[in-house]
Amino acid sequence: MIKLSKRLQTIADRVTAGARAADIGSDHALLPVYLLQAGKCPSAIAGELNTGPLQAARKQIAEAGLTKAIAARQGNGLAVLEPGEADTVTIAGMGGSLMAEILETGRQAGKLEGVRELVLQPNVGEEIVRRWLTEQGYVLQSESLLEEDGKLYEVLHALRESDSPDDVTNEWLYDPSFLSVQLGEAEKRDWLYRMGPYLLREREELLHGKWRHEYAKLARICAQLEQSELPESREKEAQLRKEMNAIEEVLSCLRTAKPSSSS
């Protein structure tokens, strides 16, 4: 059985056993091959836009003896799917804006028909993906933040609202009342989308480091803006310092003790 990276293994672990999977932007088809070798999925589709990775995927699938169970297809995003062909779609390793665009284009074309589960790993722009999920009737079931080769990755696992447990709803996830910070309700909700409702609730340790890094980046930009006498620089600096203050406010929640399971 092939061995996956920590990032891909986290994605594989979130896929529901027995699901027909479609991996979009599959590269070498490592994830679909693993899912079948592990007996987790009966069939899979490996979608890839570029010819080089597609050929590598087909080679990987052939070497694993899975050419009858995994279809490697060339196409843009969800264009490789037919409606009702997959139960689970996985997409990893791209920006959140592009990921949401792929999902929305596919949704409008009917490609997400029958897809009850999404496992997504955006490299940046996680907030955009969370908002798309909420707007299109998917509910986050879990979020994972992991570190690999010095980089942090977020893995989002979502189910269609009709398949989500009764006690897991978007209303509950993005209810900002548990954030005891001096921000307005709308601002609190925005930060839930940006940082992740589960990651914040669970006081995920890596989350603090990720956003301290973001804070430091904003501080460096502000230091550069201070050197400028342009009015727009003052305005931009004020905007960034407001964001830095909000980051400090929300991170203060992560320094408190985790709530008990009975709370």
Rank of each mutant, 00 (worst) to 15 (best):
L4Q: 06
K6S: 03
A12N: 02
A12E: 00
G18S: 10
R20E: 06
I24S: 06
H28Q: 11
L30A: 06
L31T: 06
L31M: 07
L31A: 00
Y34E: 00
Q37P: 04
G39W: 10
G39F: 12
S43T: 14
G47V: 00
E48M: 01
T51I: 11
Q55K: 15
A57L: 07
R58N: 07
K59F: 03
K59W: 06
Q60N: 13
Q60S: 10
I61E: 01
A62Y: 05
G65C: 12
T67I: 08
T67R: 03
K68T: 06
K68N: 11
A69D: 09
I70F: 00
A72S: 04
A72I: 01
R73F: 06
R73K: 11
G75T: 01
G75A: 02
P83F: 08
D87E: 15
D87V: 10
T88K: 10
A92E: 01
G93L: 04
M94V: 01
S97I: 09
A100M: 09
A100N: 11
R107D: 05
R116D: 12
P122K: 13
V124A: 10
V124Y: 05
V124C: 03
G125L: 13
E126K: 07
E127K: 14
W132E: 11
W132C: 02
T134C: 00
T134G: 04
Q136V: 06
G137H: 11
G137M: 13
S142P: 07
E143T: 05
L145D: 02
L145I: 05
L146I: 15
E148P: 07
L152K: 15
E154C: 12
E154N: 14
H157D: 06
L159F: 11
L159C: 05
R160A: 08
E161F: 06
E161N: 11
D163V: 01
S164M: 14
S164E: 11
W172N: 10
L173A: 08
F178M: 13
L179Y: 04
S180E: 15
S180R: 14
Q182G: 08
R189V: 01
W191F: 11
R194T: 12
M195P: 14
P197W: 12
P197F: 12
P197G: 07
Y198I: 11
L200F: 03
L200T: 09
R201G: 10
E204P: 04
K210A: 00
K210G: 00
W211E: 08
W211D: 12
W211K: 12
H213Y: 05
E214P: 03
E214A: 11
A216I: 03
K217G: 06
K217T: 02
L218W: 02
A219W: 09
R220G: 05
L225A: 12
S228E: 14
P231I: 07
R234V: 01
K236F: 08
A238C: 12
A246Y: 02
E249D: 14
R255L: 03
R255V: 01
A257Q: 13
S260T: 15
S260P: 03
S262T: 15
S263P: 04
